[in-house]
Structure formats: structure tokens, C-alpha cells
Amino acid sequence: MRAIVTVIGKDRVGIIAEVCALLAKNNINVLDISQTILQDYFTMIMMVDTAACDMPFAQMVQYLQEEGRKIGLNVHAQREDIFNAMHRI
């Protein structure tokens, strides 16, 4: 299943590495990354494939959120379908 992971937090060294390590640990494959700094805030959008992840999707969402909070990041994961529904006909 494809999902969109958004990461927002105060910019510092190593955010991408930490988030990617977190994803890799759970067999979540990164397909695409787009990243920028918006008003001092690190903003990253990742497209990921969760097919090989052991956790059920809803649990994974919660896990990423909690792990993100521990390292000072706001991490959201959502199924890609919601964005496609809204922006693609």
C-alpha cells in the first residue's frame, strides 16, 4: 500500500537520516522524497510503500507519530488515496 509521510519540525542536522532509519527498520520502502525549508521549519514529504511492513497500517501511523515525537518531529502517515481523490480525477 502506498502512503504519504509528512515530516515537519525545527530544522537541524540529520532529520532525513533519522526518519529514513525509522522507516527502514520497519521495512517501509521510500519511493520519492521532496524536502524544503518553510519559515525555518523543515518540511519533508515522502511517498512510501508499506507492503512489506509487519504492522497493520493504522498501528504503523501511530508508531511513526510516537517515534517522531521522541525526536522532536511531527510525523504523519496517510494512505495516498485521500490525496488522489482530492487532486486527481
Partner: peptide, 12 residues
């Protein structure tokens, strides 16, 4: 591929 703006618009 969805654009960054589209994704941020939905999240907003």
C-alpha cells in the same frame, strides 16, 4: 506524482 502543494493543501 502528487505535487508538494497539493499534499500541503490537503493537510492544511
Amino acid at each position: 506524482m502528487l505535487s508538494r502543494n497539493e499534499i500541503l493543501q490537503t493537510l492544511n
